[in-house]
């Protein structure tokens, strides 16, 4: 049984009513099959209405659902022979990022992902999936290794953001993220990234410079967490829902912007309702994109990735005449 979110309550209430009626009918030997069928039909309608028209705020709740499958859930379902590798060789092993080598349909690949905890204890040792510099550097080490051995790289993105702590700063959080962005852009192997939950800011992007960027239907990807945006905009972090709507952070938005290459559909109600089905859909999408990329040379892969990110940005270029007078900065 999955835990219901507040916006799912009407649906859950109806489900309970149906179950009660069934039980009551059985106990009292009364035939309610017609009523039950009617209610089931209504349930299906409600379900479609509810999940077919989710707003950004509700999607945000699904993306953050504590039962939502994590990187390790996908890794164990999608790959075989996974060998987890540890440490950045510089400071520590950051458990907010997991990675290693594995096979995808027989092909050796490197897989890296953010890792949230499954419970409070697990979350504490994984810093709730928010990496320190050593996490990004572990990821980089594994990706460099993939580049050396010409293995494709698959990344899973699922983090609120890089860990905002004093020790992270002292060890160069900025530099660690920046270096990943720069080096990921120059690896001569296929890189497929999948945003599976919350894609939060630079900490997410540090695993996100891929030839293909896929996104689950109810995942989000944003420059700042909606809570952070709300506290900056209205000095009130509780208005995150409204900020989420303003910021266009859903998979559908990002697909429309041309930033995400494919939206991977989720089972009705979200990935946590059926992790196996979800993993199969992710595997199918990753595999399709990978096959397109496997035919490319290292140079073509680098160029393909560069072009993808080089082209992102929206602006206007005014008529040069209008700017001539402020062109000179001579004092």
């Amino acid at each position: 049984m999955t835990a219901e979110l507040p916006f799912e309550r009407p649906l859950a209430d109806l489900r309970r009513k149906i179950e009660e009626l069934k039980k009551f009918g059985e106990e009292k030997q009364i035939d309610f099959s017609e009523e039950i069928a009617r209610l089931e039909e209504r349930y299906r309608q409600m379900e479609e209405e509810l999940y077919g028209n989710l707003g950004a705020a509700q999607i945000l709740q699904l993306a953050r659902h504590h039962q939502r499958p994590t990187s390790l859930d996908y890794i164990e379902r999608i790959f075989t022979d996974f060998i987890e590798l540890h440490g950045d060789r510089l400071f520590a092993d950051d458990l907010a990022i997991v990675g290693g080598i594995a096979r995808l349909d027989g092909i050796p690949v490197t897989v890296v992902g953010h890792q949230r905890g499954k419970d409070t204890k697990d979350n504490i040792r994984r810093y709730f999936g928010s990496p320190h510099p050593e996490g990004f550097r572990k990821a980089l080490r594994l990706m460099r290794q993939a580049d050396k051995f010409r293995r494709p790289i698959i990344t899973f993105i699922d983090t609120k953001g890089a860990y905002p702590g004093d020790t992270a700063e002292m060890r160069g959080q900025s530099e660690a993220i920046a270096r990943n962005l720069m080096e990921m852009s120059s690896f001569g192997v296929p890189i497929v990234c999948v945003v599976i939950g919350e894609g939060g800011s630079g900490g997410a992007l540090a695993l996100g410079v891929g030839n293909r960027v896929l996104m689950l239907e109810n995942a989000i990807y944003s420059v700042i967490s909606p809570n952070g945006a709300a506290s900056i905009l209205w000095k009130d972090a509780s208005k995150a829902d409204q900020a989420a709507e303003y910021m266009k952070i859903t998979a559908a938005d990002l697909k429309a912007f041309g930033i995400v290459d494919e939206v991977v559909p989720e089972p009705m109600g979200g990935a946590h309702r059926n992790p196996d089905e979800q993993a199969a859909a992710v595997k199918d999408a990753v595999w399709r994109h990978l096959q397109e990329l496997l035919g490319m040379t290292p140079e073509e892969l680098i160029e393909d990735r560069f072009r993808k990110f080089r082209a992102i940005g929206r602006f206007t270029e005014a008529q040069p005449e209008q700017t001539a007078e402020c062109a000179d900065y001579a004092e």
């Binding site: 920046a178 962005l181 996100g208 940005g313 929206r314």
Partner: peptide, 10 residues
């Protein structure tokens, strides 16, 4: 939003 984030990669 996302356009801004992607400038880091660019």
């Amino acid at each position: 939003s996302i356009f801004s984030l992607m400038q880091m990669a660019k």
